[in-house]
Amino acid sequence: MIYVYTGAIVLLAMLLVYVALYAIRQKDLLYAVIATGVVSLILSIVFLMLQAPDVALTEAAIGIALTTIAFVITIRNTARYENDNAQSGFNNKKE
């Protein structure tokens, strides 16, 4: 049991860093924001494993749902891709 637990927590920790790096490096902000949501998701699982169910629930409700939605709304109102400025919203495609 301890092996599974240890393996899981190490795996999740590595995944956390990987997804965070992905969120930073991704040029398409929508993907980056989804990746940030995934970071929150993994974090929520880690909290659960660290015997903090309250925190896990909060992170799940606020970190995953609300924060991601707030980011998505902002992207809709500004620019989707990191490199362009002038075009806004979801409707433009990446050249």
């Binding site: 956390l16 930073i24 940030t36 970071v39 929150s40 974090l43 880690v46 980011f71 902002t74 990191e82």
Partner: peptide
């Protein structure tokens, strides 16, 4: 480093997440 403002805000929430993890990890037994 990132020039895009949304990326900067993403960075801020990542710092947040890391700090939360750190806190919870300290309390773990």
């Amino acid at each position: 480093i990132k020039k895009h403002l949304i990326k900067i805000v993403i960075g801020m929430s990542l710092v947040d997440a890391g700090l939360h993890l750190l806190f919870v990890a300290i309390g773990y037994i």
